[in-house]
Amino acid sequence: MRLAETVTFGGSGLNRAAELRGDAAAQAALLARGRVLAVWRGKPLTRGGEGLGWLPSDSVALHHGRPPVFLGFDEDHPCFAVDISDWVPEAGAEAVQAGFLDQSEQHHPGLPRDLVFAELRAVMLRLSPREAELAATAKAVLQWHRSHGFCAVCGAASRPTMAGWQRACPACGAHHFPRTDPVVIMLVTQGNRALLGRSPGWPEGMYSCLAGFVEPGETVEAAVRREVWEEAGVRLGAVRYLSSQPWPFPASLMLGCAAEALSDSITLDPAELEHALWVSREEMVAVMSGAHPRIKPARQGAIAHFLIHNWLADRLD
């Protein structure tokens, strides 16, 4: 695909400098002169929602944080991330997940007023490609540390190593690595039409491409065919890979594909989809412009929006 890595969170050429992760002395020196992205309960620190809010390593906001994770170099700037989720905001300021997107923001009293913790979904379109990659990496790896604190082999508490890119078990010696879950997301077409669906609980009118997790022992192509059949009862023929997107909610890799439908009758799995329908190319133009009376477009910044937009522009080859 000609524009494969221009999707949000796409590759920005970040130098992750993996060769430095096991060098404790180098890590200490880099941290001393580097900059740190604080993340609170999955929310990165932002500067008024218009960019990431970087801190020096001795910032008061980081004093009760967990061990830093080395993200790599932005130009010649060493970048780290620190989880400060144990910090408790003042009364009434805690985030409350309200429906599809948490719009609340939190301010740490030790930081300037323009620095706030904000939901990544809400600010991702206002980040540069490099900032987006750094934020996605930080959010996913820090969430993995929070949810994988114990050894999967023997159950003992594990500890972070390799600048945050491994966890080691002191009891049995096992090593564990950050998890990324592969998910197929597919633009299913038949002639001049594309298949859209909506999951239960989505905002009214919101539709997107069908998607699902890849199962063990399954190819990407097989996963595309299985998911569309299971969710919508549509049989597929040719499947081709188009583009991928890191999706740190919490830690998926979206594998964008195009698929040709062999049938068009829809039979829903109500546990997966609330509704699905075929949308003509002409009607999809109205959907994507926000002018359709019933259907709202896929969220801007998500790979579904990216795939549909480029299908309409005839740039999927």
Rank of each mutant, 00 (worst) to 15 (best):
H107Y: 01
M124Q: 14
E231N: 07
G155N: 03
A286V: 12
S12L: 08
V60L: 14
G11L: 10
E19Y: 09
S57I: 04
L262S: 01
A4C: 00
E227T: 14
A38P: 15
G92C: 05
C209P: 08
L142Y: 00
Q190A: 05
K139I: 03
P203F: 11
K296C: 12
G191W: 14
I303S: 03
S12Y: 14
G65M: 13
E131V: 03
G256N: 05
G233P: 09
L45P: 11
A132T: 08
P293G: 09
V220P: 11
G233E: 04
S263G: 12
S128Q: 12
S85R: 04
G110H: 00
L125K: 12
R2D: 15
H145Q: 09
Q166W: 08
H77E: 12
Q190H: 10
H309A: 11
E274W: 06
G49E: 01
A157W: 00
A194I: 10
G191D: 10
W202H: 05
P216N: 11
V287E: 01
P178V: 13
A81N: 08
W54Q: 04
P109R: 02
S243D: 05
I84S: 01
P160R: 03
S252N: 01
R198L: 10
L52Y: 01
R47A: 15
S289Y: 07
F213Y: 02
A238L: 08
L3G: 11
A140Q: 07
G301K: 13
T189Q: 13
Q245Y: 15
S244I: 00
A163I: 13
V153M: 05
W40N: 04
A26E: 15
P89H: 06
P112F: 01
A95T: 04
L142K: 03
A152T: 07
A171Q: 10
E283C: 00
G48K: 00
E227V: 15
G233I: 07
A238I: 03
S244A: 06
L127K: 05
A98C: 05
S128L: 05
L127V: 03
P78K: 07
L101K: 08
V116P: 06
E215V: 05
G110W: 00
D314V: 08
V60T: 11
S147T: 14
A93P: 07
C154A: 14
Q27N: 12
L195T: 03
D269P: 12
G92K: 10
S104D: 10
A140K: 12
A24I: 06
W229I: 09
I266W: 05
A122V: 09
P89I: 06
I308F: 09
H275D: 15
E221P: 06
L20P: 14
T189S: 12
V188R: 02
H305A: 14
G49T: 08
I185N: 02
P129G: 03
F100C: 04
P203R: 06
V123K: 03
A232Q: 00
P297M: 03
N310P: 14
D314R: 13
F117H: 10
A223F: 11
T137K: 10
G290I: 02
T189L: 03
A259C: 08
A93T: 15
H275V: 02
Q166R: 14
P44T: 01
L37N: 04
G197H: 07
A168W: 08
G233R: 01
L127R: 06
G164T: 07
R35D: 02
G173A: 12
L55C: 06
